[in-house]
Amino acid sequence: MDFAGDRVLVTGATGFVGSAVARALAAKGAQLTLLVRAGSDRTNVTGLDAVLAEGDLRDEASVLRAAQGCRYAFHVAADYRIWAPDPEEIIRNNRAGTLAVMKALKAAGVERIVYTSSVATLLPDDHGAADETRPATPEQAIGAYKRSKVVAERLVEDMAADGLPVVIVNPSTPIGPRDVKPTPTGRIVVEAANGKMPAFVESGLNLVHVDDVAKGHLLAIEKGRTGQRYVLGGQDVSLGVMLADIATIMGRKAPTVRIPRGVLFPLAYANEAWCRATGKTDPFLTVDSLKMAAHNMYYSSAKAEAELGYRARPYREALADAIDWFRAMGKIA
């Protein structure tokens, strides 16, 4: 699809997935308007030919101003924290932000919308790869972030049923360049590449190049069915294999010590308590992350492949790109 001459709004373009979506749109000729928070890190939008509209996701009026004249919109932004001193804050932010953005886009008359959800809204399948037919309830989701995405996705589905022209995409676990924060998975890549993960809790992830996720967003706005959700994933990989691949790229010895989850729960509780006491906001080990590790988070993109023409490259290419970028940023020695 060619976006030449089309004004397109993107939220979350200063973030990891949002910046990839914005760059994919720019390559297709879109005239970009990027909704950004005042004082946000603009590293990921440097060099992009775009209008930067300052606003807040929870402020419907600021989103409406940014959306004026936009034919399409991609709502990628979210409060992406796995942990917070007040977990309910994550749920409140993602629900209120999604509601305000969708109402503003409807009021602005945007023709077509893609909402970025997450595979966090789907129940894992311990016997295989989960897909769009396994929606979770908020009560079934582990942790505040996953609950918040379930709540927000159900809200979007209800608005789609009322006529909002929105398609939902569910990225799995993206890796690759421009992970400035970094994401929890990006932190694993950095720590492992620097030789600081001699042991691990075994689990499973579906890893995908962030630029393939971005291409999936563009396919969704072109071919996706209103109100439908589409998993945008890559390859199912155990954490042990991922760490071994990182070690191979870095010329290091792969970690082989597997730690039982149970013995780490006291450390996770202590780590969270320390963060509350010190004001830190990004514990590396949390209770919810250990609970999540009990399930292999494997997912199928068959629906997106069949309906959208979505494809993902081998995950090792994404891993290599991520390591190259982190090294260039000085995060990997």
Rank of each mutant, 00 (worst) to 15 (best):
D2S: 15
A4G: 11
G5C: 10
R7P: 07
L9W: 03
V10M: 06
G12C: 08
G15W: 10
V21T: 02
A26R: 01
A26Q: 09
A30G: 02
N44M: 07
G47M: 13
A67G: 02
A67M: 05
C70M: 11
A77E: 00
W83S: 09
P85K: 12
P87A: 01
E89W: 05
A108H: 11
Y115E: 03
T116N: 14
G128F: 07
A129F: 09
T133M: 11
A144V: 03
A144H: 00
E157A: 14
E157G: 13
D162L: 13
D179F: 02
D179V: 07
D179A: 01
T183K: 04
T185R: 04
T185W: 02
G186T: 06
I188H: 01
E191C: 12
N206P: 02
V210L: 12
D212C: 10
V213G: 05
V213L: 11
T226N: 10
G227W: 07
Y230D: 03
L232W: 04
G233L: 03
A244P: 05
I246P: 02
M250P: 07
A254K: 07
T256M: 08
P260R: 12
R261K: 15
A268L: 11
A270T: 10
G279H: 13
D282K: 14
D282I: 10
T286S: 13
T286Y: 12
M292Q: 14
K303Q: 08
A306V: 09
A306G: 00
G309E: 01
A312I: 01
A322D: 10
W325V: 00
